[in-house]
């Protein structure tokens, strides 16, 4: 191949370090994820519940008596977000399993960390990808649903006493997306294979659900529910939107503690695994 006489220009325009350094990581990773047609299909799928809820709101505004069967109030958004939890798990498996695992496999982690970037920038860049994907399944449709509901039925929603709905949507969607994203990212950092990471993530979620079911059956105590990540998120969501727990209430501190510990554990895994030098002791 010809090489020698190609021009090489010096680049003298070096400026100060960027304040926001993680953005190129997020942008490129998102574009790689969204380049897959199957993933776009999945993104379309996660909006189906939004359409169903929209139809529900429309029907109730046109036929108020339907509200007795399909109640439309603040709890609607809590239910909607709880429903979306399963879909964020799917998005995280297909969009997040390879985020770090692939970089570990191809050695790309060195490309990132040998640049003027900290490990925190790298993790933030990857986490933002998952947050964006999960927000697209939670925050975005929930806020849109709220906006459409305000427009269709101002008499139902345009009240001071319901002003808490929008902030609660933001809070619940953020808790849900952050926890799911952190778990997916930490599991991705534990493997060099996106497939293994995806299966491990699904295994953790399903495995905890099974353990929860068995323990709840044996002990007959609602506290056993906190073993399931999905249940913890649901309990927090119900708490935020004032939805009553069925089958006995669980003190809010339990799921909060589990979620905080889960997030801390994920951060510890990321701290240990996202390194330019692998130290084998």
């Amino acid at each position: 191949m010809p090489i020698y006489e190609q021009a090489y220009r010096r680049w003298e325009a070096r400026g100060p370090l960027r304040a926001v350094r993680f953005w190129p990581i997020t942008r490129e990773a998102l574009s790689l994820v969204l380049a897959k047609r199957a993933f776009i299909g999945l993104l379309v799928l996660v909006w189906i519940p939004f359409v169903v809820r929209l139809i529900q709101v429309y029907i109730v505004t046109r036929f108020p008596e339907a509200g007795r069967v399909l109640p439309v109030d603040g709890r609607l958004f809590g239910d909607f977000l709880n429903q979306q939890t399963g879909l964020t798990l799917l998005l995280s498996i297909f969009g997040g399993a390879g985020l770090i695992a692939n970089d570990l496999r191809t050695g790309a982690i060195l490309v990132y960390l040998s640049r003027p970037l900290t490990r925190r920038d790298y993790v933030l860049g990857k986490l933002s990808v998952l947050m964006a994907l999960n927000y697209s399944a939670t925050l975005l449709p929930a806020l849109l649903l709220y906006a459409v509901s305000l427009g269709l039925a101002p008499e139902l929603f345009l009240k001071w006493e319901l002003a808490w709905i929008a902030p609660m949507i933001v809070l619940h969607a953020t808790i849900l997306s952050l926890v799911v994203s952190l778990v997916a990212l930490a599991i991705s950092a534990l493997s060099r294979s996106a497939r293994v990471a995806g299966l491990a993530f699904a295994g953790v979620i399903v495995g905890l659900e099974i353990v929860r079911g068995v323990l709840e059956g044996i002990l007959d105590r609602p506290e056993a529910r906190v073993l399931s990540l999905q249940n913890d998120l649901r309990i927090i969501g119900n708490l935020l939107f004032g939805v009553a727990e069925t089958g006995g209430a669980v003190p809010a501190i339990y799921p909060i503690a589990v979620l905080v510990l889960t997030a801390a554990g994920c951060l510890a895994i990321l701290r240990a695994r996202v390194r330019a030098v692998e130290i084998v002791r």
């Binding site: 496999r105 191809t106 050695g107 790309a108 640049r115 900290t118």
Partner: peptide
């Protein structure tokens, strides 16, 4: 480290690329 790294170009011994790019 960031000030030093921005003035250095590093070609690692191991394979390094981003899949699909």
């Amino acid at each position: 480290p960031l000030e030093v790294r921005r003035r250095i170009g590093y070609m690692p011994e191991v394979d390094c690329h981003i899949g699909g790019m």
